[in-house]
């Protein structure tokens, strides 16, 4: 389990380093995810080295967002000043994105299936 955590942190470290060094718009952890995927596909890293650690972190991923969410309490005043455009924009747009993305993929999947 520990070696899995070491690997995950190392990949995050390299990702953060690249993000800072080249001033990339992508956060280091997302770059780390891409690098780890590449390493797994190329066979440089074996899945069993980190499966246990990865499964544990993914199982509790939702919880890691809780402190950031509690931070919303600092901005209640800011939000309440223009609450209607802020809340309506955020809520409606979230449903719009799910519908547009979901329908686009559904439509293209059907196109590809009918080709096959």
């Amino acid at each position: 389990m520990l070696q899995g955590f070491v690997l995950l942190l190392l990949f995050q470290f390299v990702g953060e380093g690249l993000s800072a060094w080249f001033d990339l718009p992508m956060p280091g952890n997302v770059i780390g995810m891409a690098l780890l995927l590449l390493a797994l596909i190329c066979g440089w890293v074996k899945l069993e080295w980190l499966q246990e650690a990865a499964d544990l972190l993914l199982r509790y991923m939702a919880m890691f967002f809780v402190p950031a969410g509690v931070g919303v309490m600092l901005y209640f005043d800011l939000i309440s000043r223009e609450w209607l455009p802020i809340i309506a924009g955020t809520v409606i747009s979230t449903f719009v994105v799910m519908a547009v993305t979901g329908w686009t993929m559904k439509y293209l999947d059907q196109q590809e299936e009918s080709k096959e």
Binding site: F5, L8, L9, F11, Q12, G15, G28, N29, V30, G32, M33, A34, L36, L37, L40, I41, L47, L50, Q51, A53, A54, D55, L57, L58, Y60, M61, M63, F64, F65, V66, P67, A68, V70, G71
Partner: peptide, 24 residues
Amino acid sequence: YNNGGRMILFLLGPAVVALAVPLY
């Protein structure tokens, strides 16, 4: 609260890296 909160938030970093596993 955030003195402890940020330690929990820290784990989000390696968790995002770990998303490579189900993708792989």
